Amino acid sequence: MRIVMLGPPGAGKGTQAARLADHFGIPHLSTGDMIRHAIASGTSVGISAQAAMERGELLSDELIVTFVDERIREADASMGFILDGFPRTPGQASALDAILAQSGSAIDSVLELMVDHAVLLERILKRAEVARLSGRTVRRDDNSEALNVRLHAYAAETAPLSKYYQDMGILKAINGLQDVDAVTQSALSVLRSGRSSPMTAPTLS
């Protein structure tokens, strides 16, 4: 099973991707983990990425697609995977489709967590407070101003991507306003039935 997870910052897609990966016995692949894996392994693309980051440069789409291509060819991903943080644009999605087509496979489902703006802000601020109380470093972007910027950037970036997968008939909406266990069960139900879960449309204003 090959799944793509979509969702705005704070929606919990990393948590849900990890849970679904455990359930299906397939790897949870995040962009950050793939980059770190390639650098630690000393691959040519990892060396290129490390050099670019040391120069303070953003990694190109071409480089990120290469990371994904290398990672999903590894043995543990032969039966499927869950992608978290990639693709981010229709261009990246098209590149992913082309990679998978080479082996006669394709993305099976795209799960998009739908969460209201106000709920996201509450989650982010709670995360910051928990970190503060436990003596851990609070993320610099865990505040309302940064979240607003990230949400609007996500909406602008992801709206075309959602349509891309919707047009393919594989986009499934998940009500991310539920508690963690309920979201997981909704995701599993959606994957079994192919129907989106009841949800409240997100507010990004």
Rank of each mutant, 00 (worst) to 15 (best):
R2A: 00
M5V: 05
P8S: 00
P9C: 05
P9M: 06
P9I: 04
A11F: 01
A11E: 03
A11K: 00
A11P: 03
K13I: 01
K13P: 03
G14R: 08
G14E: 00
L20M: 13
H23Q: 01
F24M: 00
L29H: 00
S30G: 13
T31A: 06
T31H: 00
T31F: 05
D33F: 03
M34Q: 01
R36C: 06
R36H: 04
R36F: 02
R36E: 10
H37R: 13
S41H: 07
S41E: 15
S44K: 10
S48D: 11
A49V: 08
A51V: 14
G56S: 11
E57H: 04
E57V: 02
L58N: 14
S60R: 10
D61G: 08
E62F: 02
E62N: 10
E62H: 14
I64M: 04
I64S: 01
V65A: 14
V65N: 08
V68R: 08
V68K: 04
D69E: 15
D76R: 08
D84G: 04
G85N: 10
R88E: 12
P90I: 13
Q92K: 09
L96Y: 13
I99G: 05
L100F: 08
L100R: 04
A101F: 07
Q102S: 00
G104P: 09
I107K: 07
S109H: 15
S109A: 07
S109C: 14
L111W: 12
E112I: 05
V115A: 01
D116F: 09
H117C: 09
L121N: 15
L125A: 09
K126I: 01
K126A: 14
A128E: 09
R139D: 14
D141F: 09
N143K: 09
N143Y: 03
S144Q: 12
V149K: 10
H152W: 01
H152V: 06
Y154F: 15
A155D: 04
A155Q: 10
A159E: 10
A159L: 06
A159H: 06
K163D: 13
K163H: 02
Y164P: 05
Y164I: 01
Q166R: 10
D167G: 11
G169L: 11
G169S: 07
K172C: 11
I174V: 10
G176S: 03
G176M: 02
V180W: 02
A182N: 07
T184R: 11
S189A: 15
G194T: 06
R195F: 09
S196A: 13
S197F: 04
P202A: 02
S205C: 03
